[in-house]
């Protein structure tokens, strides 16, 4: 199974990335111990130069992580023809116990790496490298995460056996079994959409406040992450159902398939970007108090918040469009439906 080209590519990317970051660990420790901008020693100058290498490497690794997250899901979906019982990515990820942990770890690695890059960006704006210790401390956390993601992914691909009967989305998201995703699927679509709308509204309100006052970035980050969770919940409980036009099919992965026009990517990409930018805003806020960043940090904070809000808005627009063009009516007497039906061209 390991001889699949896409699998080789994924392993190559994640192992190289993790090892590259791991190679910077001794340097991180030496920064934590010896960094001193007041000193003009050779060691200090060397370290200052070396920081550029680490930032560039991390940027490359993050780009690879993002691309490999997409490739991982895409490949899992494609490989479903190889396993008995698998119809989409869920089936492939269920072939052994490492599938879903691997996906979650990849997502965590993506968010952690984007947080680190935000930190790095902030640090590079201050003339005295104000965040350098925090940054390299964070690298010590990021590295095990990347190594774990690479290791679990390797275990998952090594353990793929084509003779295993996988249980796929129809059994996992149907509401008859006792798993977390099931609880989501049985959630009332109106409630799920309402919660998502509410979370978005909070994100926008807090975002406006940050734009106006330059404060409340941490609250915004928390709201953005909550909205991320609410949006995923809404995808499982309602949005995917609108796409399939089948009331009992709740799979969040099938929407990525070509049969549905890969519409899932239009939903997930803005959503992930919005959450990552929201997280970055939360990192910017405490940095505003640092003397050398008083000018740069609030500017970056506002930019992150604006971009995050724009991404959430894009996600919301795509979601509304999916509901509007669907032939399925989930909530007959809901106000949303009434509004949508009144718009010309809406499908009854």
């Amino acid at each position: 199974m390991i001889f699949q080209p896409a699998i080789i590519a994924l392993l190559l990317a994640s192992l190289t990335g993790a090892l590259l970051v791991a190679g910077q660990l001794p340097f991180s420790v030496s920064v934590l111990r010896h960094w001193n901008t007041a000193s003009g020693s050779e060691r200090q100058l060397e370290m200052e130069k070396r920081t550029y290498l680490v930032s560039t490497l991390l940027a490359v690794v993050l780009a690879a992580e993002l691309a490999s997250l997409v490739l991982f899901v895409f490949n899992a979906d494609r490989m479903s023809t190889l396993f008995v019982g698998a119809m989409c990515a869920v089936g492939t990820l269920n072939v052994n116990e490492f599938g879903f942990p691997s996906l979650y770890l990849k997502m965590a690695a993506f968010f952690a790496a984007s947080g680190w890059l935000a930190l790095n960006h902030l640090d590079s704006r201050g003339h005295d490298y104000p965040l350098v210790r925090v940054k390299y401390g964070a690298l010590l956390v990021l590295c095990p995460l990347l190594l774990a993601a690479a290791g679990v992914q390797l275990a998952y691909f090594l353990g793929l056996r084509a003779d295993v009967i996988a249980s796929c989305c129809s059994t996992l998201f149907s509401g008859n079994t006792q798993v977390t995703s099931d609880r989501l699927a049985t959630l009332d679509p109106a409630v799920a959409l309402g919660v998502m709308g509410g979370a978005m509204a909070v994100v926008f309100a807090l975002g406006r406040r940050v734009q106006a006052t330059g404060r409340g970035g941490v609250a915004f980050a928390a709201a953005a992450l909550l909205a991320f969770v609410a949006a995923l919940e809404a995808v499982v409980a309602a949005l995917s159902v609108y796409v399939y036009e089948m009331p009992h099919h709740h799979c969040p992965f099938c929407i990525l398939k070509g049969e549905y026009g890969h519409v899932g990517y239009a939903l997930y990409l803005p959503l992930f970007i919005a959450a990552a930018l929201g997280l970055a805003a939360g990192i910017c806020q405490p940095a505003c108090r640092i003397a050398s960043l008083t000018e740069a940090a609030p500017r970056i904070l506002r930019r992150c918040v604006t971009a995050s809000m724009a991404s959430y808005a894009l996600f919301g627009l795509v979601a509304a469009w999916l509901v509007w063009r669907s032939h399925l009516i989930l909530m007959e007497e809901s106000p949303i439906n009434a509004i949508l039906l009144n718009l010309s061209g809406g499908q009854p």
Partner: peptide
């Protein structure tokens, strides 16, 4: 096939980029 193009991209552009980071720095 889209997956194939993405895979190929990983096989060529990624090694090149990683190999050139240190010399560039």
């Amino acid at each position: 096939d889209e997956l194939q193009v993405a895979t190929l991209f990983f096989f060529t552009v990624f090694p090149y980029t990683v190999a050139t980071v240190v010399p560039i720095w």
